[in-house]
Design a protein around this nucleic acid. Sequence first.
DNA 1: TCATAATCGAGACGGTACGTCCCGTCTTCCT
DNA 2: AGGAAGACGGGACGTACCGTCTCGATTATGA
Lengths: 194, 194, 194, 194
Amino acid sequence: MTVPKKKGARNKSEILGATIELLESINYSSLTIEAVAARSSVGKTTIYRWWKHKSDLVFDAFIAKTETLFEFDLTKSTYENFVQQLLTLTSVLKSGIGRAVLTVVAEEKEIAAKFLNDYLTPRRVETKKILQAGVDKGEIQDNFDFGIILDMLYGPIYFKFILFNRIPDQAYIESLVTQVMKGIGLNNPLYLEE
Amino acid sequence: MTVPKKKGARNKSEILGATIELLESINYSSLTIEAVAARSSVGKTTIYRWWKHKSDLVFDAFIAKTETLFEFDLTKSTYENFVQQLLTLTSVLKSGIGRAVLTVVAEEKEIAAKFLNDYLTPRRVETKKILQAGVDKGEIQDNFDFGIILDMLYGPIYFKFILFNRIPDQAYIESLVTQVMKGIGLNNPLYLEE
Amino acid sequence: MTVPKKKGARNKSEILGATIELLESINYSSLTIEAVAARSSVGKTTIYRWWKHKSDLVFDAFIAKTETLFEFDLTKSTYENFVQQLLTLTSVLKSGIGRAVLTVVAEEKEIAAKFLNDYLTPRRVETKKILQAGVDKGEIQDNFDFGIILDMLYGPIYFKFILFNRIPDQAYIESLVTQVMKGIGLNNPLYLEE
Amino acid sequence: MTVPKKKGARNKSEILGATIELLESINYSSLTIEAVAARSSVGKTTIYRWWKHKSDLVFDAFIAKTETLFEFDLTKSTYENFVQQLLTLTSVLKSGIGRAVLTVVAEEKEIAAKFLNDYLTPRRVETKKILQAGVDKGEIQDNFDFGIILDMLYGPIYFKFILFNRIPDQAYIESLVTQVMKGIGLNNPLYLEE
DNA sequence: TCATAATCGAGACGGTACGTCCCGTCTTCCT
DNA sequence: AGGAAGACGGGACGTACCGTCTCGATTATGA
């Protein structure tokens, strides 16, 4: 049973929905507040009441769309978890709102900071647990910088997407994770010798 | 003796210069053609004669600024060459025009394609030579995907810059290159020493 | 003993008061219902309950302010009564609400009609009694159009006020009344000769 | 042969024309700059480039409409000239732009001052010549205040128009002029005949 | 050497969206 | 239950730039 929302909340989610929909067909800078207002049958004032800038609106729309994604399963192997995470990431990036939020983040440092704190860092904390679990299970070494490993995993995905305009496919992701794990895995010949 | 440029060429470089200067203090979307025209003492018409969109102008300004960078030295080690390359990259990103061009690339697929073809791919071809030289010198293995290795090197730099708003420092870069090379290195002295 | 007003009536006069006060410092078109509501500590709804338009509100405020003025004294001479009436008129016009109501009247025919019926005509009826008393006392002739004489007395006052932005002073008023009476007085040489 | 106007001037007169036309069917405060722009097929910017406020635009439109009116003929009698002048005035007031400009003048002191200096005073100077000619021809006395006489002639017209919403007809005007001249006339045939 | 054309700056132009103000209505919550 | 408080859809405001378009003034050449 859906709890009936108040007017305010209902409007808010309609506005975010309209934003997401519009961004499927146009890019961020072509998105106008007036179009969002029209599509969500709302006055411009209502939008400006809650979001000071277009970038805030887009950011919130992104959060609304992605808030339930990116869970992981500690019973699976480190490798499988990473592959799963990166696949989920590509599905997010694929959407119009995904590209839009990256555009904003690339341009506005304030939004970048918000994106980092509200979105990236919490997920990064969780993701480190995958690594830690891997260490605990004896799958991987423990003498490396977690941060750099994560950057080596996530960086290439964003890199391919933004600069190559290419959504990495499963094969790429598997190769990437494999390659990264070569550098930290216990089965790395380099270390097995030690 | 400086070769006297024709009016057209002189104007063109003044416009590109003005664009670069303006982007040091404002961001891409705040950059207006009118401001560029005013700062370079040129009519708007003159700018539109050569560049159809603001994004083209910014892209050309970026190319103008970076065309002489990114050479490398085959006599140095693979490791040193990569560190050098990534350091040069960070110095480019640091500038206003660097961030601006990334903003455009993140948003406009056409510019992203142009950036890829005119800028990234040529450099990538060159960079692969570093890897190949490393293989030839016996520093690294030869059974891996060059593309993924490059993504693991460059991806994290762009990733840190765009999403974390942080220019990686030398220490980070050295750790990164070291970590990547762990995945592809032979038991060469550099790594065996660890 | 002051009769305690009901809530409604108390609110009503506070709203009219706020309207009058605001119009001392701003002009009619800058007056907003929201400002009136704020100043009289009342919800906008309450104002709209009683007045359909801003113009109605201003009109009522004007009536409230002027309802006790403009009495005259039949024991004085015709001349003195007219001078007194015109002086009173100038004091009304001088106030912000005075100018405001004229603005409305100049623009909205409905308000002009209301102003005529509820305000001007009753006073005009009274004023004609001054003229009639003058005739009865033998001060002035009886063969003229009362309407035109009143227009010649009042018209110039409004005319000076609206078009010249000047409040006629006592000297002007005395000259005016004198000049008008020349045309109807028994002491008019033109008629004495008859 | 009509001299071809430049773009600027052509636009300007189209805008003034659109303003006049719109004011025939709506009142001043309902007139929007956007509607004027739309009707004259012009961008809002173009209107704002030349007129800072709506009131300035309306004032200029009024001037444009009336600049050729109000000439008089010294060979005719004082009486005839005045009747003619007042009839012309009523025809101006009758139009939408006439009422609109009075609305503005009633509300905005700056426009009132401009109206006075640019429009009323020049005409008043001319009109005084009618009076002076009357004195010279021996039709009227010379011992009165010209200003008050003019106020007694023009005031009632504006007064009737603004407050009674009534355009004085020829009969009214003739009565008015007759009555005013009674106060200043010599025993000339025109009046002795009565 | 000069007229004749090409080029360019300046900025007016029609237009779109901005972010704000206030309208008049509607909803919520407190007294 | 009534009213203040204020959210709401809406319309116009006045502004900033867009990309196009005249318009002279300035070059710059080739007759």
